[in-house]
Amino acid sequence: MSTFSSIKELLNTLSREHKLLAEMFEKRKTLSYRQEFALELVDQKEERLQYLMERSVIRPNGAFVELDEQFLRFFEQVLEVNEEINTSYIHENIGHVKQNILYYLQESSEMRRFSYLKAVKGSLVKIGRITIRNIIDLKRNIDNTFKTEPNYKVKIAKLENYDNKRVDINRLIDQTELLVTEEEETFFRAAMDVELAQIVNHLRLLLSEARNNLIEIQKQILEYLNQIRHQSRLMEKIRQLKYLKDQFEIRSKTNLMDYLRRSNDVVFETNPTYPLKLSLDYLQSDTAFEVIAKVNRKLKVGLRPRLPSAGSIATEYIMGHTLEEIHINLEEVKNGFEASGHHLFDFVMRYQFPKEVPFAERVTIFCQMLSLYENDFNVTDKFMQHQEIEFAVVYPG
């Protein structure tokens, strides 16, 4: 078995075979991945597949290939999709903290003491991150087990196992808090700097949050177990009654008929309900949004506010009024001017418009016609004056 000679070789290999590794990781929960499918993703080059096998990135399994456990765990931890609740990581980091604190207190070299202090800081950061990550995975696994596991006995066994994991995490949280507050008080007083103080304070906040989440998880597990046992007992009784009914022995071997005749209050009792708390992953999905929107639309039915009716409209507002406006057709005025023997200003002043047009408006009409039909008229160099208005003498063109 060969190993990677450098980090550069490892990164180049993962980059070159990213299609195959991504496909195998997405299908990691299936039993195995066929070797011919893997060859398609490496361009049918068996030497590339053999290269991955020699360096234990993947491993053969007959006609199939699988991701090596080491790389599979690495991908799951980095992408934070691992389902395994592993409290040994927390325990190992607590041990590393104690060992490096001991080395720090016994070391006289400042450079080596600094390296041990750095290792302590790194382990404390890992403890907080791993603890929160384990609690998130624990909560998700509990919800998935309750909602997807079809076998009642397996479901109960899994939930009880997760409860044991909860107890282990809680015990490690207590050990960590005891470590940073009492057991190694001498070290934290002697080696305390700004960075270490920030790390310790942040760690204690994370542990406090983790403890509160574990209390909620404990309540959730107890609630799920009670629901499962209630459903299990109910289903068992139903199966027994179904069996007796199929054997035509339900009347002879049970007092069901007498019980039903004596009981008059069953129909008035409400059915026991066990509300489910939806996971955050589900609430963030598009399906949950559609369901919430649908429920919201149903709840709003019949809650439309009544708008006050408007009063009756007054008669004067609905009476018809006709407005007439007389428009002066400048084209018609131009045609009349071309047929006349007068210059333009004199013609406009004498023209009979369909309405009364004052002098100032007639001067405006003169200017408009001169502007619109300048190319059709003959504008001379001669000027005349009328009521303090000087104008050019204009004849038809």
Rank of each mutant, 00 (worst) to 15 (best):
I135D: 08
T181Y: 07
H202I: 09
I199L: 06
K121Q: 10
Y162T: 04
R171H: 14
E182Q: 14
L222A: 11
N212W: 04
N144H: 11
Y103G: 09
T186G: 13
H202T: 13
R204E: 14
R166V: 01
S115W: 12
N86M: 02
T148D: 01
N141I: 07
A190M: 14
T181Q: 14
P150A: 03
R229G: 02
M192F: 06
R171I: 07
L196H: 02
D168A: 12
D174H: 14
S88E: 09
I132A: 13
Q106I: 10
T148R: 06
I136W: 11
I127S: 01
K126P: 05
V200S: 04
K147G: 09
Q175H: 13
N86D: 10
G122W: 10
Q227N: 06
Q106S: 13
I217E: 00
V194Y: 15
G128F: 04
S88H: 05
Y162N: 03
L207E: 08
D143P: 05
I156G: 01
I169R: 04
H202W: 10
N141F: 02
I132W: 10
L179R: 02
E83W: 04
Y162R: 02
V194I: 15
R204G: 07
Q99D: 15
D168R: 09
V97N: 05
A190S: 14
A191I: 11
Q106C: 07
I132C: 10
R204D: 08
D137W: 10
V97T: 07
F188H: 04
I94A: 03
N144L: 12
I169T: 03
L179A: 05
E209N: 11
K139T: 09
I85V: 07
D143C: 05
R171W: 11
N144A: 12
H91L: 12
